[in-house]
Structure formats: structure tokens, C-alpha cells
Write a protein that binds this DNA or RNA. Structure first.
Lengths: 136, 136
DNA sequence: GACATCGATTAGACGTTGTCTAGACTTGGG
DNA sequence: CCCAAGTCTAGACAACGTCTAATCGATGTC
């Protein structure tokens, strides 16, 4: 509901080609923080002839245009996160899956007091296991 | 000052061979958070015939024995951190270098209040630039 | 000291992830 | 229809990391 992927691409100055649309429609909707190879696998189901280069190019383009954030904390490789807003990350050590943690769920104090460091952004990275209780 | 690398290895049940000693003496002393390849380069200066496999094996061994922590946040690849104690990390976006931030310099609140998440450990990752002021 | 055994090391093959390039294909404007 | 600009593909290439077979070395026994 709301904006289609095609519109979002156009609004960011990206030609919505078939291949780019397929990548965007998957990666901008998922909360799986997929790696580039995972994205490739997913998208190949819809556009079987798409090349690896195109997937990588499109992902990097989306990052450059601010529609996607690179995640350098996943277990194996780099992942991508369509959640542009500041938030934290929880890594489930049992599954390796990365979950978003809302910004307001935690409070970090004294960031401004760090001497000699101009902090542009920060986040908390948590590791552990999901319990049986409800979880976001 | 204090314990030699050989002693630390022996105490952890690691045979201090020439190669392992060379790796340990570099990686346990540096604060550069080097990648495995950087370690290889450094160590080759002292033990020119050392193989890549030995460097990787030794680093993984040191991690398994708790003498080293893997860092999955560096710009390019995984790095290694001889600082075993909990602490935070600041990534200088100008240089890509990773700097330690003492645990007590920041305060994170409400970690225990996260529903459905059993947090085993956490850290704050900050990105920005080092200012001209004094810095650790 | 000779020997057997077990662990450590080496060189190189291999797999994965990511980038780059040349050429082919699309698209839109005239 | 033609051209130019942009996009896509296949495959080569590079970096990083693991694995394996063979060699080397240290240790303990006789």
C-alpha cells in the first residue's frame, strides 16, 4: 500500500528497468537483511537471466541513492537493510539472523561527551538468543 | 612488561611454535584491528616462509582460546581485536581505522527491558571523524 | 642415537564473494 | 529509421578464506 517500488526508483532518479524493479521489489520489502547473493537467488526466480553484475550494480545504486543501508555486521558477509531510519540491531547467535531493534527501545548516554570524536551516527549491536517471549 | 606472548600461549594450551609466536607477538600487541591479510603481511617480514593457512589457523586458534576477538564491523573484512574486555568501537570514516572506546565512556540503558531477547553481549558502534581535540 | 608418532607447517587447489570489462541489447529523441 | 546514451550479460579477474596432501619437526621410547 502506498508507494510502489517503481515510483520510489523514479523519484530517486533511477530508471526502473525490469531488472532493477525486480531487485527493488524484493530488497525494499524484506526484513531478512539479505546478502547480495541471497538477493540474486531471490530475483533469479523472477528474472532468470539477470546477471550477478546487475544485482550488485543495482544494490550499490540503491545504497548510493539512500534507499538502502549496507550492514557490515552480519555473520558471514555484508547485508542490506531497507530500514533507513536510525535503529539498532540484534543478532540471533542461534540462527545468524539479524533483527531490527527500534531506536527508542534503548537509550545511549554520553555520546556527546566523547572527547576528540565527531560522531555522525551510532547504533547498538546486540548478540544473544531470542527467548520464548513475544518478540518484534 | 608483564607476560610474554610465549607464556600466554602456553598458558592457553597452545604450542608456541616459531610461526605462532610471530603471529601472536604482532596481533596481541597491536591496536590496529588488523585483517588476517594484514597480519600475514606483517608476519612475513619476520618469518618469510609462513603460509597463509598457518596465519589463518593461528588467528582462529587464538579466537577459540579467547585471546582474540573477531570484529565483524570493519570496512572491508573481518578484523581481530586483542582487547578481550567489553568495549565499544569508533570507526573513523575518513581513514577507515577502528578505535576502541572504553566501556565506561558510554552508558546504554534499558537493555534488560528488551522483550523476547536474551542479550549475551552488546556494544555501541560509532561512526564519524576524529576531531582536533585530544583523543585516546 | 634411531625410531615411531603426533602435531604443525607448507604449497597450492578450491569455493565464495565482489568488481571490472567488452560487447550486445534497449530505450527515447529526432 | 537512426543515433546516442544508458543498461544488461557473460565471463574474466581479484580478494578472502578454507581444505587437503605431503612434508617437516618435536617428543617420548627403547
Amino acid at each position: 500500500m502506498g508507494t510502489t517500488a517503481a515510483e520510489r526508483l523514479r523519484r530517486s532518479g533511477i530508471q526502473p528497468s525490469t531488472q532493477r524493479l525486480a531487485v527493488a521489489e524484493y530488497v525494499l520489502e524484506t526484513d531478512a537483511h539479505p546478502s547480495a547473493e541471497q538477493v540474486w537467488d531471490e530475483v533469479k526466480a523472477r528474472v532468470p537471466t539477470i546477471s550477478r553484475a546487475t544485482v550488485y550494480n543495482t544494490l550499490n545504486l540503491l545504497v548510493r541513492k539512500g534507499l538502502l543501508r549496507p550492514l557490515q555486521l552480519a555473520e558471514g558477509r555484508v547485508g542490506f537493510d531497507p530500514n533507513i531510519e536510525p535503529h539498532h540491531h540484534f543478532i540471533d547467535e542461534a540462527t545468524g539472523l539479524v533483527h531490527d531493534v527500534p531506536w527508542d527501545a534503548l537509550e545511549v548516554r554520553r555520546v556527546e561527551a566523547l572527547r576528540g570524536l565527531e560522531v555522525r551516527e551510532y547504533q547498538v549491536i546486540l548478540r544473544g538468543r531470542r527467548g520464548k517471549a513475544r518478540a518484534g
